[in-house]
Amino acid sequence: MNVSPDRPSRFASNEALNRALSTRLRPGQASAWTASLAFAWRGVLKIKHIPEQLIDVTMTPILFTLMFTYLFGGALAGSPTEYLQFLLPGILVMTVLFSTVYSGVTINTDVTKGVSDRFRSLPVWSSAPLVGSVLADSVRYLMAALVGLSFGMLLGFRPEGGVIGVVAGLSLLLVFAFSLSWVFTTMGLWMKTPNAVMNLGFMAMFPLTFMSNVFVEPETMPGWLEWWVNVNPVSSLATAMRAFMHGTFNLGQVITVLLASAAFTGVFAPLTLYLYRNKV
């Protein structure tokens, strides 16, 4: 370190600064895939650095599981353990779908904080930040689902479909969550603040998840509600999940879920990409 008496060196070493600046290395462009993976890595780091988000979305379903199983389980299905077999696949649906809201929150934060400015001025595939973040979100969804599943099994949930049934059910759930997260990324690019996205997102999730067959079958509900519960894709997803986890296969509902996923992705993924490139 060379510190002259009249002008103290402000840096650990000005030579280090000059050396760093004199590198005119241009390693060449990152491919679309490398760039998307780099962004996915960023998303996974965020899970590590802000575990609150994960805890947030897993705590509520855990509380619901406990409450519904032990308070209403006996009355609804004869015994808490029996009810849990019905409830848990639906609770997993709820857990994961609630966490899709954070896809919108994340993207809105990037835009409002100016991080996306830098990404967009880089010579990489312009949709890579979005694709990467949605990939990382899938990791988060899987983690949330696994926490919920482990907790359920601790309470006595026993999936008769075995590992294959569970994997099939979770895969279908992830497909639907992936498609739904595009709805929230669109919302995230539309709205002004991360908080607004979170509030509106959760508000939209309530009728989607509660007014479904996650907790009870709709037969005893008033006609209009029964109608909604039956057309709600979340009900189809919950039914299909239950079937997979209990060792059967409900083709009709699986197709319904896949169609709904295709529709959400088909409309909202292009909309998100369009807004990302043009609006912000």
Partner: peptide, 22 residues
């Protein structure tokens, strides 16, 4: 406005950009 990711560490921010730049 400093356009770095606040949730990541300083090192992670730079590694991310270096990866993106090939």
């Amino acid at each position: 406005y400093a356009s770095v990711d606040e949730d990541l560490t300083g090192r992670e921010n730079l590694v991310l950009l270096a990866r993106l730049l090939g």
